[in-house]
Simulated assay, not measured.
Amino acid sequence: MTITEFNTLTKDAASQALELCCVSQRWIAGVLEERPFQDLSALQQRANFVWSTLGREDYLEAFEGHPKIGDVTSLKAKYSGSGNLAAHEQSGVSSASDKVIERLAEGNRQYEEIFGYIFIVCATGKSAQEMCELLEQRLDNDPEKELAVAAEEQRKILQIRLEQWQ
């Protein structure tokens, strides 16, 4: 999709397009307030501004839009390169060893137990080993710091997804 195409969508269709980048309804509504956009840069700037105005509940809603790392089988299936955005972004997992995948699954289980939401990381360009190490490091964060880190990772993800709208 291009910015021109996005600008001509109905409000519902534009909302659905933005939902592919981030499912936070307040984020979507805030971005749509400034439509039409002159160019991709203007859209990205608005996306960042709206993101900076959101709070905990909005972040948690956004996190729910990501695939959950639950067990080893579903983890392998989710990131096997099926062509969807999340699979492509997290393709570093598809070539990971079973040991690393098991560590990711166990780390995510611990993470969810500690923080109450799934581990969010901008996985683009990262190997499964790197993601595993980041997850394990972040388990020691206090809840407030971790929410800020996860929110920043979500912001990076939505920006990468918007970049495809050239």
Score class of each variant (00 low, 15 high):
D58L: 06
E89M: 05
D142N: 12
Q25H: 05
F115N: 03
W27E: 06
G116R: 08
Q164E: 02
Q110G: 08
N108L: 01
E146I: 09
L75I: 06
E5D: 06
H88T: 13
A77Y: 07
Q159E: 12
C21H: 09
K156N: 13
R26N: 11
S24F: 03
V93S: 07
G81H: 08
L43C: 02
V31F: 06
A47E: 12
A86F: 06
A47R: 03
E136F: 13
Q166A: 02
A42K: 11
F115G: 04
A77S: 14
L54S: 04
A62D: 03
E146N: 02
E89R: 13
A14G: 12
N7F: 08
Q25R: 07
L158V: 05
Q44W: 02
L32Y: 07
R109Q: 04
E106Q: 12
L85C: 07
K156A: 11
D12A: 09
S80I: 13
C132N: 04
A47W: 09
A13W: 01
D12K: 14
Q154P: 08
V100R: 03
D71F: 02
A29Y: 13
L135C: 09
I69T: 00
R103H: 10
L20Y: 12
I69N: 03
D140W: 14
L40F: 02
L18N: 07
I118H: 01
G92R: 02
E57P: 15
L104Y: 09
D140R: 04
E163A: 14
D98W: 00
F49M: 11
L20H: 12
M131Q: 14
K126F: 10
T10H: 07
R138G: 05
V149M: 13
L147K: 03
E152K: 10
G125I: 15
I114A: 13
S95W: 15
L104W: 14
S52V: 01
V149R: 07
G81F: 12
Q110P: 11
I28G: 10
Y111M: 13
V72R: 03
I160W: 08
E144I: 12
A17H: 07
K11L: 11
K76D: 14
V50Q: 12
E136G: 05
L40S: 05
D98M: 05
L9W: 14
L134K: 11
I101E: 01
C132T: 04
E102W: 05
N48K: 11
I101C: 09
R161G: 03
E64H: 11
K78R: 15
W165N: 05
S80T: 09
D39R: 06
E89T: 03
D58I: 03
Q45L: 01
Q44M: 10
T124V: 14
E34W: 09
E61I: 07
L20Q: 10
E112T: 00
G55S: 14
E163H: 08
E130K: 11
L60T: 01
